[in-house]
Design a protein around this nucleic acid. Structure first.
Lengths: 195, 195
DNA sequence: TTGACATCCTGAGGGTGCCTCAGGTTAAAT
DNA sequence: ATTTAACCTGAGGCACCCTCAGGATGTCAA
């Protein structure tokens, strides 16, 4: 199983690259404003390209979403590595969690796709999700080792909590954004008060 | 604004009632197996009825979902009333929360609709959601009065937590159902240990 | 029993979106 | 200049949504 089979490769010919980029830009805009179920035909026409061209570069909707959000996930992983070994592991973990929730709710419907990708191999985003999973797990372990977080919390559970927070955030888009509060409650729920 | 304007009325003629019931039964089965986005044309044909008949009784998909899940919500409210004034308000609250999560994830996509209905008036399920909100708020208040739950938790936040738990549950359908654990974490997070 | 009629049912049809594929075009390598 | 693999196009088949004009029928009152 070559995981990359699903991942759109950046094309080599100049016109191909141009269109690839245009489609990606249009997709980002459309996802932002409409959600992950934006019309692919709209995206194509917005990119000034026929629908077949979009499918050539991104054979599935998931692959397009993956390409449109790869940067964000990479940043998340990079940030985790920067934070690892911080003076206060709990601060590091909470800061990262906040960022993770923010990214997960970049647009409506993303968190569902990511949650799917997390445990479903053969999904475009699966590789990136795995990397993120490892990053988060490291930060969690450190915070647990420092005695700041309940030791029985597993990485999977951490991601369930993060996903839940992101989902709540995307539901209440705009007004009544209960997400900071949700995450706050979760954080206070899993941390161990400094005696 | 008459909230009932959207709610499908049980038709009066015998054939109408028959079809209404058949559609509802087919819808329940379809939602159960496919999710809230099941094909309405499939539901109609499964009920042995033309598509126009389905739309006659249930002008919108939301109204059909509402009708298919009304019983469950009513039970939830009734159960809350039965639990109110229980000897141990915390037990009552947790029992009710578990039941609520179970109902919210009756089928894939329901919790999203309910979360929407909760704060969006003019939605078919809004009335029922309001009733449920009140029930939950009562149980929460009691548990808080007993000193068992952190006093700053609002009913809205409680429902965000419940929705999040239900959403996580519906994501991990089948294997790896992290939902009991999720709710457990949330509960331990919001309760105040008995000194 | 028999109208009369409001209620109900039907299903074709127009709209949107998904995705494929046969055929035409073009960048790039030789 | 030729070749060719990469690329692009957009019509078309499929599924689903939702509406509406016209036909069928249950109900009730006479």
């Amino acid at each position: 199983m070559d995981g990359k089979a699903y991942i759109a490769q950046r094309p080599k010919r100049a016109d191909g690259r141009r269109n690839y980029d245009a489609i990606l830009a249009a997709a980002r805009k459309a996802f932002e404003s409409t959600g992950a179920d934006a019309s692919l035909e709209d995206i194509a026409s917005q990119a000034g390209v026929a629908i077949g061209t979009l499918y050539r570069h991104f054979p599935t909707r998931a692959s397009l979403v993956e390409a449109a959000t790869r940067d964000g996930l990479e940043n998340l992983v990079a940030h985790a590595e920067r934070l690892s070994g911080a003076a206060d592991p709990l601060d590091a973990l909470t800061a990262w969690m906040r960022e993770a929730v923010a990214h997960f709710s970049t647009f409506r419907g993303l968190v569902g796709i990511l949650a799917q990708s997390m445990y479903d191999e053969g999904t475009p985003s699966h590789t990136m999700c795995n990397a993120m999973h490892r990053s988060g797990a490291d930060l969690l372990r450190a915070a647990q080792a420092a005695g700041s977080v309940r030791p029985d919390l597993t990485p999977d559970e951490l991601f369930d909590l993060l996903s839940g927070a992101a989902w709540v955030r995307e539901q209440a888009a705009g007004d009544r954004d209960g997400s900071p509060r949700f995450l706050q409650l979760v954080l206070e729920g899993i941390t161990i008060p400094r005696a």
